[in-house]
Nucleic acid binder design. Structure first.
Lengths: 140, 140
DNA sequence: TGGGAAGTTTAGAATCATTATAAACTTCTT
DNA sequence: AAGAAGTTTATAATGATTCTAAACTTCCCA
């Protein structure tokens, strides 16, 4: 686990990405990376910030989530037309998506074997392979 | 190919789903199913209808796409936060998603082998497994 | 060390896909 | 042929996200 000094990593990544370590970015990074992996929406992070007395506008939350995604600190997941999720786990892995609750759950890369991928269409390069297992809560 | 009489199927499915075969539904079905598989957005289908002199409101296009999806005539694909695609190919298969152009391309089920799926979280049932290979156009 | 350039944040407006509303219209059944 | 049920539609509403432009910070170097 390299979570021991979460900020060292964040600071370094911000530097790499030419993003100034502002109060807002650092506070959001703290919320995002301090406690294990999570899947969070912009709105939810904004509320969490408010609850933690961090004053940040929703626009900044959106900007920051996108900048962190570009910098490789987050991964954006689209499974549901109504909102985007941001995953703090950027390593290779997949997801269960609970269609009723809207919850996402990680699946470690080793738990799914995708073999025999077809070649990428000519003139293109594979950016990512997403496997989403959509599950529904059993009625009973 | 069972495309020889596309309407027999549509009519039957509409009947099964308790949907009246209205002028609008039939016209949209014709546009959707008459020429091989396609991936289309509501907006695009609405424009196509207009171009074909079929008068349908956008609200009806949305309603119809959702009803057809429930009836199993279409499959909804979410790969991009900004719009939903509807796929006229409802058989088991996967997709390439061209991130730049927003285009979707089918991958036959046999071309990808997903083995060793983890068990669905308890209390849930797998509704579908989506594999999306995101590709980017090579710059060059 | 101070001042300006560059980068950042923000409130609020704008956008855009989608959904809701409720009145007018069709279709079905008898 | 008539009423009930189902549909369509224009229009308004919603909600997530992005834009704008002004105020604010941070950085840099003379």
């Amino acid at each position: 686990m390299e979570t021991s000094r979460p900020f060292a990593r964040v600071l370094e990544q911000l530097r790499k990405a030419d993003l100034r370590p502002t109060r807002q970015r650092l506070a959001l990074a703290k919320l995002l990376f301090e406690n294990g992996y999570r899947h969070i929406t912009a709105e939810a992070l904004h509320e969490e910030a408010a609850a933690a007395d961090v004053r940040v506008s929703l626009a900044t939350v959106y900007n920051t989530l996108h900048q962190f995604t570009e910098a490789g600190l987050l991964r954006e997941i689209v499974v549901d037309g109504t909102r985007s999720y941001f995953d703090t786990n950027t390593s290779d892995h997949h997801h269960f998506f609970h269609e009723v609750s809207g919850r996402l759950e990680d699946i470690a890369a080793e738990q799914i074997v995708v073999s025999e991928l077809p070649p990428a269409p000519s003139g293109t390069t594979v950016a990512r392979v997403d496997v989403i297992i959509r599950v529904t809560e059993d009625t009973q």
